[in-house]
Design a protein around this nucleic acid. Structure first.
Lengths: 158, 158
DNA sequence: CAGAATTAAATGCGTTTGCAAATATCCCGG
DNA sequence: CCGGGATATTTGCAAACGCATTTAATTCTG
């Protein structure tokens, strides 16, 4: 029944099998990783967009908002509102770009950095659990493949 | 500055680097994969939960709704409403389980299968793009690592 | 075997999301 | 150096989401 349908030569999902289809596995894994983090961080008043913004800002200094949206994997309109909250809580500061007054750069504050550092152990724990029993060389190969994939699909050059 | 903070021995995100942190890369990649699919499928009246349910149902026959929620990586309440729509459009059918009248099994209809097969080329194309230039053995190793990871983090045994 | 505890699915409800439009600024060609 | 088009961010709004609760049925326990 399934076979007759694919005259085109394109293998179907049935032939591949859900458990061998990389995007499916990645969604399953990240679904749980993110849900688990969200539960951990809800107590700290941090939504997913807020924590992602903080995480990126802990590493990248004073990006433009549109850049932050890409790095943090958050829609720009959602990010805009998340930044409202973070600014209200004193975790970040918005500052108009020196050379372009349309644009806004975002800085993490000391309080913001402390908030990120308070949540980092949760992220690290989720990461450790995910890679449990996977040897170092396999991890490296995995990350290398991910980097290639990101290069394949990203639209911006960062 | 960053160094002084980590007396604990846990490497910080700064030391690892965003671009080497696997969960970050996976979120970046899946963020774009999912956004791109969503845009493709919006025209067909399919939301992400609806398309995921259909995709799983094209491969797994008559699961319980709670199983489908796990496989499809959709909250149960969201899935319940997505199934309302899919049923209204004749793409699936709900049927009370024979042995447990609390439970409901979900069947894909012929129309539903056709709808999935209409969208599959989009998914396959996104997949192909993602793995562009990655040799077969590297892909296999990558999927094997993903399978280990899923085993590490899943709460149910499916 | 009665009642408590558990499990499956649906639903109420406040919050969040994302698209599209609005606003403000900048850049480029003529 | 003026006006049209591009770019950065915010905001309006309707739809979607997720938590917690409800309803219904099953299973466990004393």
């Amino acid at each position: 029944m399934t076979d007759q349908r694919r005259i085109a030569g394109l293998p179907g999902l049935g032939e591949i099998g859900l458990g061998n289809f990389a995007p499916y596995l990645m969604n399953r894994i990240m679904g749980r990783y993110n849900a688990s983090l969200r539960a951990d961080l809800a107590g700290l008043g941090l939504s997913t967009p807020k924590m992602r913004a903080l995480a990126v800002l802990s590493v990248i200094d004073a990006p433009l908002i549109r850049e932050l949206a890409v790095y943090a994997v958050v829609e720009q309109s959602t990010l805009s509102r998340a930044l409202d909250q973070l600014a209200g809580e004193g975790l970040i500061q918005r500052e108009t770009d020196a050379g372009d007054s349309r644009a806004t750069r975002v800085h993490i504050t000391e309080t913001g950095r402390a908030a990120f550092e308070a949540m980092w152990p949760k992220m690290a724990a989720a990461y450790a659990r995910m890679f449990q029993g996977i040897p170092e060389d396999e991890r490296r190969a995995f990350v290398a493949t991910l980097q290639t994939m990101l290069g394949n699909i990203r639209k911006h050059d960062f």
